[in-house]
């Protein structure tokens, strides 16, 4: 029995509206409701980036939302999956080119699943999340392998507050 394969059964979602029209957001809310009930898949809407696996982003990224989006994304621990919900989150949609819009979510953070529609239907969101589960599992494996590789290369005793870097940077001109 491979315990690791059960990991994908617990995706906790985090929802952020980066400047959309609320349409997709209320459909995400509808997903939680009894008719669609995504808790069947073990999903919880945590509202807390530190404990989430899946980031559901809706809406085109406005200039003010951009930093918050990246900040929240950075606070999520790997493995993490980003789903852009709806046309405007995926590409900017109808808002593309407006002066305060920066375009799709993938301009700033890597997006794994694009969900189409304006607005997306709950079924589509659920479908997107289920696709994300497979990606999540793949990413988990990748992460574990990379961690294994890294642990051997890193020497002890560096500064703690940074990610360890295997090799020192040598000055080009000496």
């Amino acid at each position: 029995m491979n315990l690791a394969s059960y990991r994908k059964k617990s995706p906790w979602i985090l929802h952020y509206n980066a400047g959309g029209c609320n349409g997709c957001d209320i459909e995400i809310l509808a997903c939680l409701a009894p008719k669609y009930d995504i808790e069947r898949f073990g999903m919880i809407n945590t509202g807390n980036p530190k404990q989430s696996d899946i980031l559901l982003v809706t809406g085109p990224v406005t200039k003010r939302s951009r930093e918050r989006l990246v900040e929240i994304y950075a606070q999520m621990p790997e493995p993490k999956v980003v789903i852009s919900c709806g046309a405007c989150a995926s590409t900017g949609g109808v808002f593309r080119g407006m002066y305060n819009c920066e375009g799709g979510v993938d301009q700033f953070i890597p997006v794994d699943v694009y969900v189409c529609g304006c607005g997306t239907r709950p079924e589509q969101i659920i479908d997107g999340v289920v696709q994300a589960l497979a990606i999540l599992e793949k990413k988990t494996k990748e992460l574990e392998e990379s961690v294994k590789l890294k642990r051997e290369a890193v020497k002890e005793g560096h500064q703690l507050n940074r990610r360890h870097i295997a090799d020192e940077i040598k000055p080009v001109l000496s």
Binding site: Y16, K50, E67, R68, E71, A74, Q75, R151, R163, H164
Partner: peptide
């Protein structure tokens, strides 16, 4: 205690800084 090999993250402030 200092946990090595654990990354540090900022506190959650609703995305604000």
């Amino acid at each position: 205690i200092r946990f090595r090999k654990v990354d540090r993250a900022r506190e959650y402030m609703c995305g604000e800084k």
